[in-house]
Amino acid sequence: MITYPTLIKKRKVAVTAPSAGVERELHHLLHKAVERLQSKGYEVMIGETCWTQYKAKSAQASVRAEELNSLLQDDTVNLIFPPWGGELLIEILEFIDFEKVIPKWILGYSDISVLLLALTLKTGIATAHGTNLIDLRGKFSDPTTAMWENVLFTKSGQEVKQYSSERYQQIWNHHQEIDIVFYLTEQTNWKTIYNNPFLIKGRLLGGCIDVIRHLIGTPYGNVTYFQQQFIENEPIIWYLENCQMTVVDLRRSLMQMKYAGWFDNCHGILFGRSEANQPVNDYNVVDVYMELAEELNLPIAYDIDCGHMPPQITFVNGAYAEVEVSNGKGKVTQRFI
């Protein structure tokens, strides 16, 4: 069985940086994001790791893990909300005491997805892949991003529906202060192989493929154990997004997932938008998707609301989902069962 945490307003939100901290010149962004949470009625505590960044990490692995462990084991903490992703979260996994985790939501994406996926695979505790805290610093959130609260307030046994965005952002600008953080200028269009509409059902797993691929073959990436122990071998829907890889690196990573059995009993794959996916010798990302669809005999959707070209739907690792894609639009229903 999957264990679903429940978000409760006026309970404690803990901000910690298990990957990258916030550079001094950007501290004002974190202050503003925390103020927005507080204005909603949340009590917020900020860990020391959030304020430092040196040599591609907020602190040494043991320091980051110690702060995270204290929050994972604190029954007054209702949500752990990192400021953003980074590069080297994988360093802390060996120091995390998974057996002592008290269920609570963890929300984030990018490098944070390493922690999210590892925790769900090892413990069966649901985790939430969605907005970073820094991206909530504006006075307003777009409708897609704002759904993070609705999703996390969903109780065990209930369901929550989310829909594809109207527009998405191409270019980041952390230095300009605006009421709405994202520049949503481009028309959203969820696509499928051969433009065929589909409906797929299964348990959600996924994250940033650049980093979660490194869990393969480790104690933190045992998908078979998760399937047998927590979901009684129900089918899986993978959602994946590419941050920095060329198409050939993406292809290699997907083949590794295939060889490792991560696509066994899979009912479909969802790929997020990406400004990476650079072609190599006319080999492009749609070629990759088509080859994978043919090899695995699976429906594949791409350019969905997930990843580094926001906004993004909040996907819950472990949740039962029904995903519909038709005429460029998407609908994701998640049931906490």
Score class of each variant (00 low, 15 high):
residue 56 A to C: 11
residue 233 N to K: 12
residue 134 I to L: 15
residue 295 E to C: 06
residue 285 V to M: 10
residue 294 E to D: 13
residue 4 Y to T: 07
residue 86 G to M: 09
residue 132 N to E: 11
residue 48 E to L: 09
residue 135 D to A: 12
residue 91 E to Q: 10
residue 200 I to E: 00
residue 53 Q to K: 12
residue 227 Q to M: 08
residue 223 V to R: 01
residue 55 K to W: 10
residue 276 A to C: 05
residue 303 D to M: 05
residue 288 V to W: 00
residue 283 Y to K: 05
residue 42 Y to G: 12
residue 9 K to R: 15
residue 114 V to N: 08
residue 240 L to G: 06
residue 158 Q to E: 15
residue 141 S to A: 15
residue 5 P to Q: 01
residue 212 I to F: 09
residue 329 K to W: 03
residue 214 H to C: 08
residue 231 I to G: 08
residue 246 T to P: 10
residue 44 V to W: 11
residue 278 Q to T: 15
residue 66 E to N: 10
residue 166 E to H: 03
residue 183 Y to A: 14
residue 330 G to H: 01
residue 255 M to W: 11
residue 127 T to Y: 03
residue 265 N to K: 13
residue 141 S to K: 02
residue 70 S to C: 05
residue 1 M to S: 15
residue 66 E to C: 12
residue 80 I to M: 05
residue 161 K to V: 14
residue 25 E to G: 02
residue 280 V to N: 05
residue 119 L to N: 02
residue 226 F to I: 00
residue 56 A to W: 13
residue 118 A to V: 00
residue 299 P to I: 07
residue 307 G to Q: 08
residue 233 N to Y: 04
residue 102 I to L: 11
residue 304 I to T: 13
residue 260 A to I: 09
residue 174 H to E: 10
residue 331 K to L: 11
residue 205 L to D: 01
residue 105 W to F: 11
residue 307 G to A: 00
residue 154 T to A: 13
residue 60 Q to N: 14
residue 59 A to F: 11
residue 248 V to P: 01
residue 309 M to P: 02
residue 117 L to R: 03
residue 62 S to G: 07
residue 99 E to H: 07
residue 162 Q to G: 01
residue 136 L to R: 10
residue 273 R to T: 01
residue 211 V to L: 15
residue 199 L to N: 12
residue 224 T to N: 15
residue 312 Q to L: 15
residue 123 T to F: 06
residue 142 D to F: 00
residue 63 V to C: 01
residue 96 I to W: 01
residue 180 I to Y: 06
residue 282 D to V: 03
residue 159 E to H: 14
residue 215 L to Y: 08
residue 192 T to L: 04
residue 220 Y to V: 09
residue 149 E to I: 05
residue 87 E to H: 14
residue 156 S to R: 09
residue 242 N to A: 10
residue 133 L to I: 03
residue 30 L to F: 03
residue 102 I to W: 03
residue 89 L to I: 06
residue 128 A to W: 06
residue 43 E to P: 04
residue 77 V to M: 10
residue 77 V to Q: 12
residue 113 S to W: 04
residue 231 I to E: 01
residue 117 L to D: 02
residue 153 F to W: 03
residue 312 Q to S: 09
residue 52 T to S: 14
residue 33 A to Q: 04
residue 337 I to G: 15
residue 300 I to V: 11
residue 77 V to L: 08
residue 333 T to G: 02
residue 200 I to N: 07
residue 179 D to L: 14
residue 32 K to M: 11
residue 44 V to N: 13
residue 286 V to R: 03
residue 214 H to E: 15
